[in-house]
Amino acid sequence: MSRRRASRQDGRPRAGVLTVIALLMLDSAVIRIGLEAGPALAKPTESEFAESKPTAPKARDIQALLHELLKREERVKQREDMLREQEKALEIAGQAIETRLVALEEAEQSLRATLAVADNAAEKDLTRLTDVYQTMKPKDAAALFETMEPTFAAGFLSRVPPDSAAGILAGLSPEAAYTISVVMAGRNASAPLE
């Protein structure tokens, strides 16, 4: 306790007062520096402002850029128009091709029908002629077959029943009979066995 009494004068401690005064003075200095230095630090000088300011494009540069953009837009529009025209042309060509394909399919069906009629008629004619040769006397038929080309004669003889064909071949000259027989034998020689 003696120490406490020695440090007090007028009943107050000395160290506490000095500390408070020092803190108040320090606060005052900080406030002054903040008030005076804040605007000075925040406000740039004119030279700093001029250096930090971005260079503004000149009106001539802007006009040139705008002109180039307009030219490019015009080229894009022309390209779009050209592509639309090509698309229309392709669509028209596609329709024309579709129409022609339908016409070709119809023509093919018609041709098949015509060929079927012609094949049927030709088959009837061959059957009728084969029947005629078959009913003829072998000697008379042999005289006709002697004048025919061997492949043609072989075609008819292959349609005639074997007993009639044998009678016709017997009436032919040996050379004609041999040639027609070779043609008949070789007709299916190139056909696959299975």
Score class of each variant (00 low, 15 high):
87 E>T: 05
87 E>G: 04
87 E>W: 01
88 K>G: 06
88 K>V: 08
88 K>R: 15
89 A>F: 06
89 A>C: 03
90 L>I: 06
90 L>D: 13
92 I>V: 15
92 I>S: 09
92 I>T: 14
92 I>P: 04
92 I>A: 15
93 A>V: 02
93 A>Y: 08
94 G>N: 03
94 G>L: 03
95 Q>F: 09
95 Q>Y: 04
95 Q>M: 11
95 Q>P: 00
96 A>D: 09
96 A>L: 05
96 A>I: 09
96 A>S: 06
96 A>V: 05
97 I>G: 02
97 I>S: 03
97 I>D: 03
97 I>W: 04
97 I>K: 10
98 E>I: 03
98 E>C: 08
98 E>G: 11
98 E>H: 03
98 E>L: 05
98 E>V: 04
99 T>F: 02
99 T>A: 08
99 T>H: 05
99 T>P: 00
99 T>G: 05
99 T>D: 11
99 T>W: 05
100 R>C: 03
100 R>H: 08
100 R>G: 02
100 R>P: 00
101 L>Y: 10
101 L>E: 14
102 V>P: 00
102 V>Q: 07
102 V>T: 09
102 V>N: 01
102 V>E: 09
102 V>C: 01
102 V>F: 11
103 A>H: 11
103 A>L: 11
103 A>V: 05
104 L>R: 14
104 L>G: 00
104 L>C: 03
104 L>A: 10
105 E>R: 11
105 E>F: 12
105 E>M: 11
105 E>Q: 12
105 E>V: 07
106 E>T: 11
106 E>S: 12
106 E>Q: 15
106 E>D: 10
106 E>A: 10
107 A>F: 09
107 A>L: 12
107 A>I: 13
107 A>V: 11
107 A>G: 13
108 E>K: 14
108 E>F: 06
109 Q>R: 15
109 Q>V: 07
109 Q>Y: 05
109 Q>I: 04
109 Q>A: 08
109 Q>K: 14
109 Q>G: 13
110 S>E: 15
110 S>H: 11
110 S>G: 12
110 S>M: 13
111 L>I: 13
111 L>D: 11
111 L>Y: 14
112 R>A: 07
112 R>M: 07
112 R>C: 01
113 A>K: 15
113 A>T: 08
113 A>P: 04
113 A>L: 10
114 T>L: 12
114 T>S: 15
114 T>F: 12
115 L>Y: 14
115 L>Q: 13
115 L>C: 04
116 A>H: 04
116 A>N: 06
116 A>P: 01
117 V>E: 01
117 V>A: 06
117 V>H: 01
